[in-house]
Design a protein around this nucleic acid. Structure first.
Lengths: 208, 208
DNA sequence: TAGATTGTTAATCGATTAACAATC
DNA sequence: TAGATTGTTAATCGATTAACAATC
């Protein structure tokens, strides 16, 4: 089956499966059935098997899945069998926290550039990178061939910065600004906004 | 129509609509059609009208929606017409960044408690709150009647901390730990993990 | 072999889209 | 009034679930 035909909602679940498989591997488990995995994830065995079947048969009837092998296959499918270099734009609290977040390095994500406009932070060291002036963005990003950006600038600056990232040939943006970005079709955006998540939760809290 | 019957996926879109409506209000607009709003959001007019229709008719045929009135109604639906007090557990980089995040205060979210285990940070001031020892969690959270928690502890501690929050009568958890939490049915969890978002994006980047 | 569990097909369920009468 | 746009119903589309033959 061609990759292009796999529903996006299936793709979105694979990293989640992978996370739990990695945890299980650390626990010393070697084999898992779709049922066991489903229980850990709070989903159904049928869904896991269906999702995996878009990419082939990774298990053995009667036995389940080799955790090690399934991790390897999922990493290949998701293009995680390499290190990805990422640029962070915005060196505020959040941008700095993300830049030296241990969980990135541990999972093959390397922050190699960090930009801001504020002269007070430009030149300062954050983890292993130095904050650069945003005027250098296009040049640096393009010359390093970086395809993934994390955006942590204020709402007002978000669209303009996204436009500049697109100019610099970035193809994927993880947007922390509370704004819906407009980008060309071939650029992918994921939006993280804790306020939206909290407001979603508040609906269910009713009149407590 | 009873609230309980509105699909969760509809609820999840309301905060997103609200965000853009607020931006439009700031821009000085007074009225919006489902078509205009859809274009701004990158969705369809039909979906917006369908979603809103679960809660009633907020527009006028031929005219569209009063932005001010629609904001008011969405806030009521989502229970945002009050201030919500929130506890943050974990005073690492991320926990501290979230605790003094301006975007929370601006949208009615008040961080009033911050806990950690590390003696080095306990007693220190973060924004307007002081880091307390996690042993005080149940007592403080329960006595203040706090229903929403943000979890930024390390993966290993996440499940245990979630259990304690449930003990303290918390009903909604925003989980930043890279772990799938197991909680009672009546507790709602939302998961934020930038690594999962980035891995999702990487699938589409292919072999760049 | 017998038991367990996969991979896959068919059935069900739910969400999105299209269309249009109602109405401002 | 004529034009625009809502609210809603019906049609379509897609995702989830159930079931089971294949097979380890």
């Amino acid at each position: 089956m061609t990759e292009g035909t796999v529903p996006d909602i299936v793709i979105s679940r694979l990293p989640w499966y992978l996370q739990t498989l990695n945890t299980m591997a650390k626990e010393g488990l070697h084999t898992v059935s779709s049922n066991m995995l489903a229980e850990r994830l709070g989903t159904t065995a049928a869904q896991i098997r269906k999702d995996l079947s878009f990419f082939g048969g990774f298990g053995k009837q009667g036995m389940g899945y080799s955790i090690y092998y399934l991790i390897e296959q999922l990493q290949k499918i998701l293009n995680l069998d390499r290190i990805w270099q990422v640029v962070v734009v915005g060196a505020g609290d959040l941008g700095r926290a993300l830049t030296h977040y241990q969980g990135f390095a541990a999972r093959g994500i390397e922050i190699v550039l960090l930009f801001d406009v504020d002269p007070k932070v430009i030149g300062s060291q954050v983890g292993s990178v130095v904050v650069q002036h945003i005027d250098l963005l296009e040049e640096e990003v393009q010359s390093m061939g970086i395809k993934i950006a994390i955006l942590t600038v204020p709402a007002e600056a978000a669209q303009l910065t996204a436009d500049r990232l697109v100019q610099a040939d970035v193809e994927a943006i993880l947007n922390y600004a509370p704004v819906t970005l407009i980008v060309p079709e071939d650029v992918r955006v994921q939006h993280i906004d804790p306020v939206l998540n909290l407001q979603h939760l508040m609906y269910y809290l009713g009149d407590d």
